[in-house]
Amino acid sequence: MWTTVVVSGITLGSFYTLIAMGFALIFGVTRTFNLAHGEVLVLAGYAAYWLWKTSGVSLLFTFPAAVLVALVVCLILQRLFSRLREPLELNSIVMSFGVAILLQNGMLFFFSGDYRLIRVPTFNQGLHFNTLYLSYGQLTLLALSLLVIGLLYLLMRHTYLGKALRATIQDREAAALAGINVGAMGILAFAIGAILIGLAGPLYGCVHYLYPTAGLQATLLAITITIFAGVGRIRGLILGGWILALAESCAVVLFGASWRELVGAVMLITLLALRPQGILGREQ
């Protein structure tokens, strides 16, 4: 039983990391919090759902559409964010809160408030290893999440672009002085963030019900994992995702499913209380 908890925690946690990475990247590079992150994720999920439902294509072919939708929304968002005044962090929270409401209502209009799920029949079958059972759904989630995380890691570590992004995350002014176009890095961060969300969206639609206000939970977990990791540390994000998902799984087993939502909230408040000066406070 506890092995099941650990396995599903790692699986779900990897997926959480995938969800959080876009949020963390955008925050790291632009110093703005995108509270509409979860809404974009759900929207990408809806796009995949719609394509899957209307044309009956397999899940794999819904990814490009979801990525496209997320890209369009995020690039519009980037235009809005770039117009914000100081204090950037606080104003971005307020504004993206408005964007979240806007997107929620848009999704309500187009997809109604009904609960939707992308059902892939094979996802419910699975493999048995002694007492451990792994569904193909879980395996897909784990494999795809780790693949994308790995690709992002390679991008950040081994390309010029990644180095420029990391430099911007560490010190915007120094990066600008070194000739890095910080504004362009902001656009790039939103674009990569959008691709990550777009890849996560269809998967989200397979493991979670889609409804217009589902995004808040995803946003909260992205914030929690980002604060846990600090910016610019992919390993921290992975660890944060696993810990959060494992803690949630334990809470579900010990207290019941309805306590799950509390785990992320308590973890976030605790992290913030321990690090009151925020994520970037480590310089002081």
């Binding site: 919090f33 307020v94 909260l220 306590w259 509390l262 992320g264 408040i269 913030l272």
Partner: peptide, 27 residues
């Protein structure tokens, strides 16, 4: 928990805090 925080971080903490009385009331 939250008053040590300022600005954006205070806002985020309050956003998460609602879950506590809500989940308790729910359960």
């Amino acid at each position: 928990f939250c008053l040590r925080l300022r600005g954006a971080y205070f806002a985020l903490a309050t956003l998460a805090f609602v879950e506590i009385p809500k989940v308790i009331t729910d359960n």
